[in-house]
Design a protein around this nucleic acid. Sequence first.
RNA 1: GCCCGGGUGGCGGAAUUGGUAGACGCGACGGACUUAAAAUCCGUUAUUCGAAAGGAUGUGGGGGUUCGAGUCCCCCCCCGGGCACCA
Length: 810
Amino acid sequence: MSDYKFLEIEKKWQKNWDESNLGKCDLNSSKPKFYNLCMYPYPSGDLHMGHIRNYTIGDVITRYKKLTGHNVLSPMGWDSFGLPAENAAIKTGIHPKEFTENRMKNMKNQIIRLGSLYDWDREVAAHTEEYYKWTQYLFIQFFNNNLAYKKDAPVNWCTSCKTVLANEQVIEGNCDRCDSVVTQKNLNQWFLKISKYSEELLVGLDEIGEWPENVKAMQQNWIGKSVGAQFKLNISNSDISFEVFTTRPDTLFGMTFAVISPEHSLMEEILEISENKEEIKKYITAAATKSEFERMSITKEKTGVDSGLLVINPLTNEKIPLWIADYVLVNYGTGAIMAVPAHDQRDYDFAKKYNIEIRQVISEDTLDSGIDKEAFIDRGKLVNSGEFNGLNSHDEASSKIIEKLVDMKSGEGKTTYRLRDWLISRQRYWGCPIPLVNCTDCGLVPEKLENLPVKLPEIEDYLNTDGSPLSKSESFVNTDCPMCGNPAKRETDTMDTFVDSSWYFMRYLDASNSEIPFDIENVNNWLPVDQYIGGVEHAILHLLYSRFFIKALRDLNMVDINEPFQNLFSQGMINFEGSKMSKSKGNIVDPEGYFKTHGADSLRLYILFMAPPSDGVEWNDGGIEGTRRFLYKLWDNMNTFSDLATREIKNSDEEKLEIYLNQTIESITNHLEKFEFNTAVSDLMKLNNELSTFVKNNKEITDEIKKKTIQTTCILVNPFAPHISSELFFKNFKSDITELTWPEVDSSKIENPTYELVIQINGKKKHATEVVSGLEQSEIEKICFEKFQLSASEYKKIIFVKDKIINFVG
RNA sequence: GCCCGGGUGGCGGAAUUGGUAGACGCGACGGACUUAAAAUCCGUUAUUCGAAAGGAUGUGGGGGUUCGAGUCCCCCCCCGGGCACCA
């Protein structure tokens, strides 16, 4: 019976690592640097299985890279601003800071209990004054360089909570907290100018290191580049004109009407000259009160109203009607379009409904290019297009028509992006205050740097019934203008927590520096992060914002790099009972129980073993017994090996074992490099099974193979199950396993001396036999003829793959 | 609708360049130990025909290339994720 006492062992080594500072990183060491980063967590109170997966993967990399001679930086911190703490404060009265810090403390203990190594001297927490001082500092740099600005914008507004909501908090058009309808409301908001970097953020994806293709694709989608033309439409009998954007300038002759969004800035002027005023006003009001959700999803039935005005097609001078319709979005392109119903399905639907002419200008003989039932959007040749007839759509005709628009000075080629500026203001308490002051004389003025941080005020009531909670503190709001000294008022919004997390990976490098946010030399030396690991749910927002931050800071000469994260690994989500684990669904699996019943090493191995790390997986704890058994068996095997009697000369079992060890080193190393931890763990299990077989058949061993086996096994296990391997190694060699280096493959002892030859007849396996490795075709044939009574004359062709297979084809 | 993934035993999942499909683990079944159970150990476990030897079938479906296809090509179905009235 095994005497493997995982509780004692795990506690012992966690204490040992803490005392020996194993997780600490000296940035100036001469070893090659490796910045290994796990996404810092929101302190929700308890680790969940997603965290366990994240930090286990991270720790495997940390320990493996340390063993391969790297100077590993692996820090940890807290994304500690955010709504739940504030909601708890509203409910229970506990201060968000106290609430958050208690939860951080608990989670930190659990992380340590998992056995993950971090440099806790570099711990950061977004809600601390030492941290948000620098978030404010960076914001001011952005503001001073026109990368942060304030403007009116429509935001999600919960009618019941009376607050703005982030997009993520709007679930199918309703508030995720109270389920009330969310409407759009115009508020004066702060933005960061991420759109300035649209093109760079897009092309950067091609130059970046190893990122999952799907994450790159998601970012490409999100940035949403489209190439086309923009041109001017004049309203007939007026001096009003507006721009339209199209990706299909080749269809310009098919424009039979134009559409302008009801929120368009020209709407008042249009109203003035229109004879259809009342109907238009009604329509605008109706559109405004629809929620975003209603507008997008409803019946898909498009609505609109005829303005009664005509616009002029610049190429044909034809006058066509101008409609107002909310299927045209005000914040994409120019907020107005040329409508070509023959070649755009949305315009087609609209034209059918309102009986507007549909005029085909692209046609293709080899395809069904009819437009009776739907728009024809494929490629073809231009027809009904004057001098452009016969040209190919889309590219050839488009560029010719753009040339013409340029000649006529009414348009040009144009590229637009879906990516919009980043709205960062929140009417919330528990976030980083925006460090700007409103002065009636000087306008918006940043707080003086020496006065940072602008501290979050203490308030009684966290509810934001009317504007931001910060506005309730008079002593906070009323201040002096940093420029002229006259009485002025502070901004009362706080920042989106994604601002905090857009630069935390740089703060780790100078976590306790009270002079600067980070040292440019440290950043240039240590970034980009060599390996970033986190959940796929952050594929767009956090990763895109951080990339933007780096580019902006580079342009402010604060860093000298282009990308924050060289390689990214996105782990899949762990579901339970068919859906994402969440407190509200009550389907949480608590990892802490497994620490007690199975141990951290078992849990780590199991979470790695259950599926490829990038795949989503359904939690099922049946399998954890398997990794527990593996560890007990490993413990017993190592002890049995240790006790084997000595012999002088290796026997054939030992030679085989030696080869097996080398094969395992090779396989696990390859799997580690490719993040195939599930198969790496399976290799460890196979090795363990080999060891069991060996000790069953051998009571003696040479000292050389005994030592080699124990040492190699321990080190191969170490990144995955660090506690047991540290203990086993120490028991045997009285030294610390972390002083070893990762084993190299001995290429002279990796080939098996024999193999199982497969004999196929007409491609089907018929026989198999053990033969010596390296034999040539003629020798193999001879063996087959003798052993299986085959003869060459019966077959037309013989196919031979060395050391694998022979196929007799008849 | 568009863009990514993916479909292999009862289950999670393995399979360099096309070369023994089902590694490893879970579960199940049988056995050993035990008064008994748990734990542990040994064996069996894709389906199907057969008493057995052995045969046939088999990686979502259909076609193709090849001596040989889970892997490559064409068509289709289903599942997961992302985006979506983006002009």
